[in-house]
Design a protein around this nucleic acid. Sequence first.
DNA 1: AATGAATGAGTGTTCATTCAT
DNA 2: CATGAATGAACACTCATTCAT
Lengths: 204, 204, 204, 204
Amino acid sequence: MAGDRGGPARRTSRGERTRGRLLEAARQVMAARGFGAARIEDIVAAAGVSHGTFYTYFENKAAILDALIDTAAAQLQAVVDEPWDGPDGQAAIEAVIGRFVRVFAEHADVVRVWLEASANDAHFAARLTEVRGGYVGRVAEVLAPALTGTTHDPTLAAGALVAMVEGAVTQGVTGARDGDPAAVVRTLRSLWVGGVLRLAEDAG
Amino acid sequence: MAGDRGGPARRTSRGERTRGRLLEAARQVMAARGFGAARIEDIVAAAGVSHGTFYTYFENKAAILDALIDTAAAQLQAVVDEPWDGPDGQAAIEAVIGRFVRVFAEHADVVRVWLEASANDAHFAARLTEVRGGYVGRVAEVLAPALTGTTHDPTLAAGALVAMVEGAVTQGVTGARDGDPAAVVRTLRSLWVGGVLRLAEDAG
Amino acid sequence: MAGDRGGPARRTSRGERTRGRLLEAARQVMAARGFGAARIEDIVAAAGVSHGTFYTYFENKAAILDALIDTAAAQLQAVVDEPWDGPDGQAAIEAVIGRFVRVFAEHADVVRVWLEASANDAHFAARLTEVRGGYVGRVAEVLAPALTGTTHDPTLAAGALVAMVEGAVTQGVTGARDGDPAAVVRTLRSLWVGGVLRLAEDAG
Amino acid sequence: MAGDRGGPARRTSRGERTRGRLLEAARQVMAARGFGAARIEDIVAAAGVSHGTFYTYFENKAAILDALIDTAAAQLQAVVDEPWDGPDGQAAIEAVIGRFVRVFAEHADVVRVWLEASANDAHFAARLTEVRGGYVGRVAEVLAPALTGTTHDPTLAAGALVAMVEGAVTQGVTGARDGDPAAVVRTLRSLWVGGVLRLAEDAG
DNA sequence: AATGAATGAGTGTTCATTCAT
DNA sequence: CATGAATGAACACTCATTCAT
């Protein structure tokens, strides 16, 4: 995993607990202030440890975000790795979108921070490209058969659909019925399915 | 307009030119490095003026981004303010999406920086919410008639569609046929139209 | 007390020593160059610590002067708070003036800096007014009985007498027999006592 | 006179007027903000001229204060140069103190700024020492005959008395009957005369 | 004489990171 | 493992002064 410090820490359960507290604190602080504005000071204060202890567990500020991203990325990847039927299987596509939305929503704060960090840091930009490329590519694969013979590029379409889900969840789609993730899934599913059907109809 | 320094500067055409050069330089530097990492030093070097001159025209780093955002926001708003037919007028909706995409693409660099700055700065977050709220609300209005009798919330749907366009353009869904904005517009238009038609079919 | 940085610092005796060195350095540097011209750079160099360490103990340049003033103000206040006999008790008045002169002389450098800072900074001006008001008021109280029936205002007289002591010491009325504070006390005492007796004789 | 710029300015009456406006503006701004915090920008704004014009009339910021001090110093000197009787001539001493108070009061704002500038600038400190030395020396001369045979140093006593007057006026002696300069003169005169008489009584 | 745009040296302050205890 | 004091590089910002017009 990225972001660890190989050293002595994490051998004992006490160290494990401290590390966990730091991760949770970093997540909260970065969600609240953003990556750039989050100070180590804030994180250690939230975790209830001393300043120096931070560096027992993480090499630097980037490393702790990296560790946070590890978790989110793994779950995002899992959605993609699971079996996935074509766009015609309504229930299947709905399940996939549902999982996407749920995972994104669960990690929306980390993803927001990740997006911000990508603007300044090539490493985070690369990880983003890699992870996004992974699931956009998978979606494109699924879309491809339906789009043969049309003028639409599967990767372009996949990117747009994924951006729709990512944006809808990351931006909070607030103003609407926040409280009901099921409603969000339902609407996104219809937009996705309807959009894909339309693409398929556009003859070359 | 936000982002100006009230009094002294910009009375002569020479001053006007300097201010313009600073804006262009800021745009380039911030697009390349992001807002946080962009140093005044970089901006003035790119503009070919001295360090102090920056502050003749802008109160601080945030102010010059504010000025950049003024332009982008005005054009985004213009797209929304123009007459706009219902979702059935195919040509009309295509034109709107086309304009949206074009404006977003034209200011994609500024929007990216704006997104980053929003993570740290309440002012930019508020401006983003305001501008986004404006066009999401307008799209929702247009969608509303088609969605009566369905379970879909117009604002939620509008937010998702706008996120799709914003994300597709901002993230440079490139990787695919970059060079062809017309292709992007065509695919986004089909996804949008198809998605909306599908929503309308979903009976409550 | 004003001038501290709340939390982290000053828990260990090492920190305590560093803080003390900074205070002493600030006192010397400000006495030599004045408040405005004293640079943090000069202070940390004199204290033998790094630039950043300054901010571990004091929020900014004003805060360290504030801390210096805390000490001076407390001692000035102490002179006033001690028991104090009427203007007739010769020995008593001499003791008070002596203490005044000694405290002023001991903190003359800080008071000079304080006076300078008051010209630019409302906070220091307010503290000065407050402290001065305190002992001028006390002196006026003591003077009041002797001045009933005369045309003299006790506060005015007290202000003038205090200004005499403050000015004599602060300006280093030196040039004359510097080395001998006792001589200064003796002369000031006679001027003070003689002046007050004269005021008392002036019938309304 | 110190503080002028020899050049083209001040030849025409228009130039003369501009120079006067700058002096008056500098006086106001420096009185309000202090010397250090007064910006050329503030002064030219108050004078209603452009930034560059300042340097047509004064070499730098110090020069304009120097010019202001010229006037005050000359009048202070005049008080001292006028004929002056011994400490026994009641009317005479009262007249001198009255003139002192009046001149100090008239230029109190400039003197305050001058005091502040002396803390940072050797030139102003030197001028202050020179001017003060002048009138303190004169007062000491006058006092000397009365103090022969006592333990009191005339210069020390003179310094204290002058500090009393200077302090009383410069600090606004507020809290008391501000509005009545005559009352201030009366009280200061009694303190002065009573003090001196007492000194004279102290046998060596 | 006047204007105001341009300059750039100077300095306060922040904060990630190190290290002695 | 934990602590928190110390470090110092990095930057934003100010403002007196110059100079082309």
